[in-house]
Design a protein around this nucleic acid. Structure first.
Lengths: 111, 111
DNA sequence: AGAGAATGATCCATAAATCGATCACATGAT
DNA sequence: ATCATGTGATCGATTTATGGATCATTCTCT
């Protein structure tokens, strides 16, 4: 009996695809070869190909690294402001509850 | 001699951290437990913890899946528009060159 | 049209991620 | 203060991703 694996939602899958597109687009704009991008990112050429294809199994660190190199902006924060952004939210998170108390009700979905 | 692995750039690392923050924030806002999010995303509780901690080794599909569930928007496209976005850019990419000719010059970085 | 290079796919070996269970501790409600 | 439970960490076993090599094809430039 084959093991059942949980499929990803369409949105998650498409988001990975979209990021792959952005990376490929950025790479081509910069006249960069797949092999060159791979070397710069410190990964193999095959992995860059899977990243650009939107393979959901790729490590997020490798994908983001490739994105940075070809100039893809992540979460509305450029390389200059990302640090500050993280620090700001570290404080915001400190104010939130550390543990969630089960109300035995359905999780709140309306935001 | 230990094998040398390529470290990620600060920006890539911080982007993973930032996404983890967004996910944790979204989860807490919805009064969702780590275990509940894990179950909904089809991954283990331990993996959700690593995702929220910003571990760069996590599969991008699992991270995005968790993000979707707690309502984190990815690449300026909500669940309703992501499909169209991908399709639009598929055509745009088709117009770009399929292979990059090495000019024997430095890759173009100014964008 | 021809040559050289980039791309994409595949295979195997190895490194790494993920799971499931378990434990100690922190947290929030009563 | 007490108690139930969420959280975070760790361990071994297993699945999976990744690297490196190779091959066929497609593309770009001359």
């Amino acid at each position: 009996m084959p093991k059942v694996t949980h499929p990803h939602s369409a949105y998650a899958t498409e988001a990975a695809t979209r990021l792959g597109q952005l990376i490929r687009e950025g790479r081509i704009e910069r006249h960069m070869t797949v092999a060159t991008l791979a070397e710069r990112a410190g990964v193999s050429r095959g992995l860059v190909q899977r990243i650009e294809a939107g393979d959901p199994g790729c490590a997020i660190g490798s994908v983001f690294e490739a994105a940075v190199i070809v100039g893809v902006q992540l979460f509305d924060a450029g390389p200059a402001t990302m640090s500050r952004e993280v620090e700001t939210h570290r404080q915001k998170l400190a104010l939130l509850p550390k543990a969630i108390r089960s109300h035995r009700t359905e999780p709140n979905d309306d935001f």
